[in-house]
Design a protein around this nucleic acid. Structure first.
Lengths: 218, 218, 218, 218
DNA sequence: GATGAATGAGGATTCATTCAT
DNA sequence: AATGAATGAATCCTCATTCAT
């Protein structure tokens, strides 16, 4: 994200300001993901960035705006990528690969699920528009993918949205529980081996739910 | 939860006192579940109960204690019931029925999952002991049940905890998303028909994952 | 204002609270009159009362509300008294006595003119409604009084409001300048002798403007 | 005030610089007159000029200095002109013409009275020296003029300063109330017709107070 | 058991100012 | 001359808590 070498020489002063904004976003993302909106203090953010509180206001006009920016920066790219498959993948024989790719994507944005979950618990009051505009379509497309999947014959149309939701929860909840399990059992869910195991598990679960071979007998 | 009709005529003053504590717990439970610990204010609680803030201190010594009491009151009965099956049910042929019963149990305590999820997201810092003492054993027992299930041959021992976790997330996440979906799509996940559908779906999913009859052929 | 001896024994606790509120109003009145709204800080008010800032919020919900209360408490009684004459006095032969009585009234509320003047300078933005409801009628009545005065034949109907305004400014401005002149020349405009002189002057001025005996010839 | 058209072609860069300072003074004058010192923010000033805050510091070393400059620029010319008459006019038969000329002068500097009034209310603490040096002499000269006026026989020497003050307040208060009345009644006191009426009214009032013809009969 | 009053600590935000660019 | 960034101080206000009543 902050890779100066790849960028053509910008006006250095602007560059610096943008970097600071990015660092603020990084700090805020972590804190919001950990503690939620109410539990996060601008003092925490500032301290983490190595600034004084008023300096934050040189980059974001309010705590709310900072939160929105964190969400936008986090959700945007993920949804963009999410939007890419779905068209082609619905036709594939392997729905399990989709969930594996989602996991891989989220592995690079592990704070996002917690961020979204905080919002979800709060009823999305603060940023319902963002959620409405961004998440709803993804759920819709996911439903279409499920419906188009080979093994979807098992499920009634009414079940499809709930099925998507359940898979969503399996994925998102995994990230949500990571911190707690690390604290409780010393197991780091986000460590590569465990993560690979989880991905494999999800793939198997999906495969179970969409038994691709079923139509072969027909 | 606060069901005065079932109580025999108590000494009115004492009963009133208990009722007040109960009413505070009710209000706090709702608010903590909705907004988390940091997002909930004693003012909110007091207003919801129809008291002034200092009165809360006649019943609970601090906000933290109130939170702990809410968690204890919420988690306790559920875990108690959860503890009952497991022994017998592990022997049964139908792991799906277990999850159905959990759903039925949580339907009567719908705020509990959100409460726990808030804690989970926060890393359980505030009340790790409660979680350690209460939740960890349940997970352990659930793992044993899964391992003892007829269809468990599919899963390696390493996968079992992750499998339990995934099912846990499917259940808990469902309650967590209820408020948001109600707000977003107008769908009330907690309405009886949808809830029944979800329960049935989970049962089918579990059945898929533990194909009880399959091994009969082997 | 705070005269406990005349009041029947109230519930002491309530009494105390009301006294505190009154003391806050006193302090705020002085400060708002001296420095205006923006120039007055709650810290100043609290310090002057001998409280900490948050305690102010036990009595007034916001700085704005405190300001409104100060204005209401200050303007209310004055306007009430102002409203009393006008009916009868319009019939009198001596318009100068009215202004003398206004001066006597304001002598007991010397901060009020400065308070109102601050508002006036600010365009009354903050409390236009109060001004509209309270001051406008007084001006209207004053205009009627002027029009009904014996010597009013000199003035055209269009001049009457401007005449009222000019007299208003003579009165109000006197109080506004008091602090400055005390500071600059050491003259205390509010000292009884000077004040009596000013009252007499105003009476003469008004008498000049409404030469009561003139109509006798007509 | 900032009338570029009358200026011969200056060195553009220098001219632009001066213009910027002038524009800052214009903006600040309006804001200080409207909201007083405490109620005016450098952000407001900068926004109104179309600059960022730090740029103001290229032209004025502090908010206080800016305020002083506004006052100096506003008061200076007016006092200069005010100083011109007095000598000659004291001899004239028509004291009403003096006040008419003051009004005409202030019509071109309508913010000045409000600026001064803000200072007056604040006790002149901030800029007492300016007031002492500039305003006191004017009052003194005005007193001399009044004493030298034909109709001054009515007034005792002790009354003269108070009389001057009262007339001062009639004039200054008129400008102070302009904004409020515009807001309240939609009457624009500064519109030419109303202003002419007010000037005429003041002339009549002064004439009443100094009945020039009186000595003729004796 | 309930509450008005008081308060230390801390919340987000604004302000005037400085400095490097 | 203009400005983005940074900041100490102070703004209004809220919070959890205590205490006397």
């Amino acid at each position: 994200m902050s890779d100066p070498s790849t960028l053509p020489a910008l006006d250095p002063s602007r560059r610096k300001g943008e970097l600071t904004a990015e660092r603020i976003l990084d700090a805020a993302e972590t804190l919001f993901a950990d503690r939620g909106y109410a539990g996060t203090t601008l003092r925490d953010v500032a301290t983490r960035v190595g600034l004084r509180i008023p300096s934050l206001y040189n980059h974001f006009p309010s705590k709310d705006a900072l939160y929105a920016a964190v969400l936008a920066r986090g959700i945007g790219p993920v949804l963009a990528i999410l939007g890419e498959f779905g068209v082609e993948d619905a036709q594939r024989r392997d729905p399990g690969s989709v969930i594996a790719r989602v996991m891989a994507l989220l592995q690079r944005h592990p704070k996002l699920p917690r961020l979204v979950l905080h919002e979800t618990l709060a009823g999305g009051q603060r940023l319902t528009p963002i959620l409405r505009d961004w998440i709803a379509p993804v759920f819709g497309r996911a439903g279409e993918m499920v419906a188009a999947s080979p093994g979807s014959g098992r499920w009634t149309p009414e079940q499809v949205p709930l099925l998507v939701l359940a898979m969503y929860h399996m994925v998102v909840g995994y990230f949500a529980s990571a911190a707690l399990l690390a604290d409780l059992n010393g197991i780091d869910l986000l460590s590569p081996p465990v993560f690979a195991q989880q991905t494999e598990l999800l793939r198997e679960i999906v495969t179970s739910l969409f038994p691709a071979e079923t139509p072969s007998t027909t």
